[in-house]
Each structure stands twice: as structure tokens, then as C-alpha cells.
Design a binder for these strands. Structure first.
Lengths: 345, 345
DNA sequence: CTGAAAGCGCTTACAG
DNA sequence: CTGAAAGCGCTTACAG
């Protein structure tokens, strides 16, 4: 910056003012300075600015464990939203447990992030960490900033299946401690009338009891009259789908299968998976906006002495989910017809 | 820091020396300073340090397009490796095209990263960006720093299938411009003797010609004697697998199917997918190590005036891939037996 | 073994 | 409209 100032015979203060567009500099000088800056390939030093302003323009993104196939969507959406707001994104993986999540958070704080977006591990609460935090989990989680309306999503798939004539459901969850999964399943149940039968199985519990490779016992359920299997994730839906297909059972002719999240493989498998899609871009935008707003306020609070109340954002905290009807769901088999046994049963 | 110094009646220089362990401070003073620092909850300012040392201790990770389901593994491995080396990771998504890749890179540079790990878009070359760059693509790409030995991986699956008696292959790629995919397919072909027949189809080409939903025409190939289908990604293998199953064809009894990358769903589908696994943790470690090494050199180069040659690391630049034999590959159907037609053919 | 001093690159009152 | 000056928090020669 001082090079520009010297080259033009002005002060560095003027250069700073010109480049930041804070006015107070004549138009021609601004032009000359801009030109010179480009010419010299000037790149402002973040460190200098950060030291002076006390803000790094970097946000931290704390993700739960890696195995979540939704991670790409989340990270990409957050990066885009942050970048549009002028922020960079530092990532941290909380690798499963709460301890590493805490460590990850402090590592980010040490790096001087201005705020944190955290996708918490199964509803862990984040204490006060000394900087603004936007939490994205599910509307029912206390402290949640923005998230998809998982409950509504559950209700949507369930209604879709009920409309197709299904009356006997198998609901598949993974982790009974997950708020998101509970909301999805809760939403499904809320859409069932009293003449709908349904049972829920939690894969983690099942696998802990019977081992990783345990069969899901799908066939038994089908013989008990289940005609629709709704999973809380496309990953589980895929597992169900392939297990059924291998047993010679036709989807959706004999059973309908639905998932959640619209994962990358969902549209390309055969039959393509009916699922519920999340508008991650929107969620990220809102989360980042909330964060940036809090950061700005924090800045203005100190000088003015006024403590601005956090804007109540209850009305924008739920982002609607979209039902994607594809090929894996269809009309229920007539309830009178005996269950058509698959060839390898 | 000055608070600690004041509280203890020493200079901030001493506090700095004590905390950084650069010696030159008596043991008891170090102890006292440490204690005080903890007591006051001292967190060193990255900005201050960065401004002074000219290094941010942050690395940039440039990823190609979001749809790559390998992204979680990559990001997580890089974050872990970087974090172990004392670096944070700033992400940037190059969203498809080369222009945004370039923009992403300059954004990271502006944020003051000390180095860049870039997973390039289909073999785009990265020019001089003014900071150390580690590129992870495939050994055959000029300028590649570290990567899995995709060629060897291809050879491994192919050999596995040949050993099972397969003599007629369908090879499935996606993007003919991808170095990685070409190496994988090249490796496969290298393992075929002269009595092996094989044809290759590229999905992107096919879909551009016939539309997104185009059938892969698998049945035709099977009727022409194909007994093994090897894809360059589990995603395509899954597509093939479900398309075959829906057509009533048994995997692996009638056809073997293999993929690449050991994606999250591969072990849980039925039949579980035979695939090739990449040691991302190792690759990330080596990439970060190479980068850190270059960064350190850059630092020491200036004062000493010596220009250290970049260490030749050709011998560690290929990380071996591991064949994961699972349920989707099996013995070839006898070449004499007529192809057993699936029920819906 | 410890301290005084300079300076990394920026921004922001303040004066002119 | 422009400039001189101070200071953000650290580290690093250099003196003592």
C-alpha cells in the first residue's frame, strides 16, 4: 500500500480511503490510485486489516462426523453464501464425539474466526464460545438458528404414500438420539390417520444388538402386510431397495420405498428414489445472514453502548422441504390380495 | 499478552519468548508466565502473529465440483492432516469450470493462505499463483504432487476379475477428459491379456447424445457375452447394479459388477460392492507434508540466500490402492452356457 | 536471562 | 479533499 502511496506521492491514508471507497477522496485521485493498485498487483493484507479492525472476515464451519453424505452440499452451500457475504470459511470436523467438537471449536476461535456455523452432533448444545454462533439442526432443537423443516418433510412423504393407498408402514430410522431423525419420523406419524398401522425400527440399535451385517428382516414385515417403507435417509432407503431387489421383490409394484435428502445417487438408481429435498442454499444463506448480522451488531454495540436485541427470526428459521416423487413409490397393492412372494423367499 | 506482562512485571518480549518456548527464559519464569496466561485465558492473536511473521498458518483447499461424493473423505483427511501440522483449512469450491477455479484460488490468496492444496478440474494446470501449491490428481498428470495410484487400482480390479475367469468386459467411464478415469481404465486394460475382450463406454458422451435418463444398454452387452462390468466409480457401479437387478439379472451369479472409491453406500447395498479403496488419510498427510516443507523452505530461503531445490519426492507420490473384494463380483458364468435371460428381458 | 524498540500492513479519528 | 500519527498484537534482532 505504501508503494502505491509513494508512487503517486500521496499518503497511505489516502490510498486506504480511496480503495475502501469510504469517500473523502476526490474522484480523479481514486481513479489514479485504483489504476496504480491494479498495475502493481496490489493485494490487501488480511493480517494487517484483521489486526487493525479486530475482525478476520473468516467464519468457521463445524461439521459433525464425516460419514454424513450430505456434507458436500452443506459445505458448498455455506462456502457460497459466506463468499457472497465477503467471508471465507474455515472447516473443522468434529469427528463423532463431543470432545473433539469442543476442540474443533476452540481451534477455530484461536484462528480468530468472527463467527461459527455449527451443525451439531445429535443435539449437543453449544455453550457460550465468545463469538456469534449459528446452529443449524432442526426447528425443535432449542437454540436452532435455521434449518429445514424436517417434521414437515416427514409429513409430506407420509401424506404422499397415504394418498397412494398405503395403510401399513415400516419406518426406518438410524439413531434414536438424533433430533433430525426424530422430527422426520414424528412428522410422518403426524400425517397418519387412526386407520394407519406403522412400526419403527432404529438401525443403530438393531446393529448394536445383532451386528453390522444384520438383515433388516424386511420380508417378515412385508408378510405382516407392510406395503411402504419410509426411511429417514436415502442411504437407508438404498439399503432397503437393494435388499428387496436381491430378494426378487419388485419396487414399487410390491412395496414402495422412500428416503430423505436427495443424495447424489438417488436420481440415478433404478428405480429412482422418491425422497425429500432440502434447500441447502437457502439454509446456508439464512444461517450466514444471521451470523453476519450478529457480527455487525457486536461491532456497533461497543461504540454506541446500545445493546441491540437479536432480531427475532422465528418466522424464517424453518426452510420448507420439497417432496421429490420418483419411481420408487407407487400405489399400494390391494389389501385383499395375498402378498406376492418374491422368488427367493 | 501485555496484560500478562504487566501482571507479572516483565516485558512482553519475555512473555512471547516464554510462551513460544524459544528458550532464553528461565524455567521458573516460564512456569509463572504459563500459569498466568492460563489464568487470564490468553488466546494468542493470529492476526498479530500473521502480520509480524508474514505467515497465516492457514492452507487453502480447492475442490472441483461439489457433486464428487469423495469430497467428504478428502476434506476430512486434509483437515486432519493440516490440523496435525498446525494449519487451518480454508475451503473453496471451484464449482465446475476453470474460471471459478481461478477465482477461488485468488480469493484464497487474498485471505493470505500460506499454501494451496488443489484437486484440479479434469487435469487443468495451475499456473504460478505466488504460493506453494500441492496438486493431487493422478500420477500421470504433470505437476501432480501426491495421489492414489489409479492405474494400479485399475489393474488390481481387472486382475481380480480375470482370475475369476472373466474374458469379456464392459468398462464404464464417465468423463473421457478426466485423467483419473483414464488412468483407472488404462490400468484395467493393462491387466488384460490378448484373449480378453473389452469395450468402454463413457457416460457423459452417451448422456450428451441420448439424454440424462438414457438406458445404458446393458442387456445388449450381456447378450454379446459380457460377464463383468467394471466402472470407474461406485456411483456408476451402483447405477449398473440397480439397473441389472430391476431387469431381473442376478449379480454376481450372472454378471459381476465392480466400482471404485469405496463410497459410503458401497458396503451396505445388496450385494455389497467390490471396489477399490483409496487411502485418503495417507494422501492428505503427504500432500500437506510436501506443502509445509515448501513453505518452511520459502521462509529459510530468503535470509540465507540459498535457493534450496525442491526435494524430489517421486518415490512417495503414488499411494497404493486397495482392492476390496465384496459380494458383487464372482466367478464368470461358463462361456459355453447360453446367457441366462433375466425374466423381464 | 531479560528488556527496549522497531515494525509487519492496515484503518481511523483528528487536524489542516 | 488530503496527511500525519497512533495503534491493533505479535516477534525478533539487538543491547544490556
Amino acid at each position: 500500500m505504501s508503494m502505491i502511496a509513494d508512487a503517486l506521492g500521496v499518503s497511505s491514508a489516502t490510498v486506504s480511503n480511496a480503495l475502501s471507497g469510504k469517500g473523502r477522496v476526490s474522484v480523479d485521485l481514486v481513479d489514479k490510485i485504483r489504476k496504480k493498485a491494479d498495475e502493481l498487483g496490489y493485494v490487501p493484507s488480511n493480517a494487517g486489516r484483521a489486526l487493525r479492525t479486530g475482525r478476520s472476515n473468516v467464519l468457521g464451519l463445524v461439521l459433525p462426523d464425516i460419514s454424513n453424505p450430505l456434507f458436500p452440499q452443506i459445505a458448498q452451500a455455506m462456502e457460497t453464501a459466506a463468499s457472497n457475504a465477503g467471508y471465507g470459511v474455515l472447516i473443522a470436523d468434529s469427528r463423532g464425539n463431543v470432545t473433539t467438537q469442543t476442540q474443533a471449536i476452540s481451534r477455530l476461535i484461536e484462528r480468530g474466526v468472527d463467527g461459527l456455523v455449527v451443525i451439531p452432533r445429535r443435539g449437543t448444545r453449544i455453550g457460550d464460545v465468545g463469538c456469534p454462533v449459528a446452529m443449524v439442526d432442526t426447528p425443535s432443537t432449542p437454540g436452532n438458528t435455521v434449518s429445514a423443516d424436517h417434521w414437515e418433510g416427514g409429513a409430506k412423504v407420509a401424506r404422499h404414500l397415504v394418498d397412494l393407498g398405503h395403510k401399513n408402514f415400516l419406518l426406518i430410522g438410524h439413531d434414536p438420539a438424533s433430533n433430525v431423525q426424530n422430527d422426520r419420523i414424528g412428522g410422518m406419524k403426524s400425517a397418519f390417520g387412526r386407520n394407519i398401522r406403522h412400526t419403527t425400527i432404529w438401525l443403530e440399535t438393531l446393529m448394536r444388538e445383532r451386528g453390522e451385517q444384520a438383515s433388516l428382516g424386511l420380508i417378515d414385515h412385508l408378510q405382516n402386510g407392510v406395503t411402504a417403507i419410509a426411511a429417514v435417509s436415502d442411504l437407508h432407503a438404498l439399503r432397503v431397495l437393494t435388499e428387496l431387489q436381491t430378494a426378487g421383490i419388485k419396487v414399487p409394484q410390491q412395496v414402495s420405498v422412500t428416503g430423505f435428502d436427495d443424495l447424489i445417487f438417488s436420481p440415478v438408481v433404478t428405480p429412482s428414489l422418491t425422497t425429500v429435498h432440502m434447500d441447502m442454499a437457502r439454509i446456508a444463506e439464512l444461517a450466514i445472514a444471521a451470523l453476519v448480522c450478529e457480527i455487525e451488531q457486536a461491532k456497533s454495540t461497543a461504540p454506541t453502548g446500545k445493546t441491540l436485541k437479536r432480531t427475532v427470526t422465528a418466522d424464517i428459521s424453518k426452510v420448507s422441504m420439497e417432496l421429490m416423487v420418483r419411481a420408487s413409490s407407487g400405489p399400494a397393492v390391494s389389501p385383499d390380495a395375498p402378498f406376492p412372494t418374491g422368488e427367493t423367499l
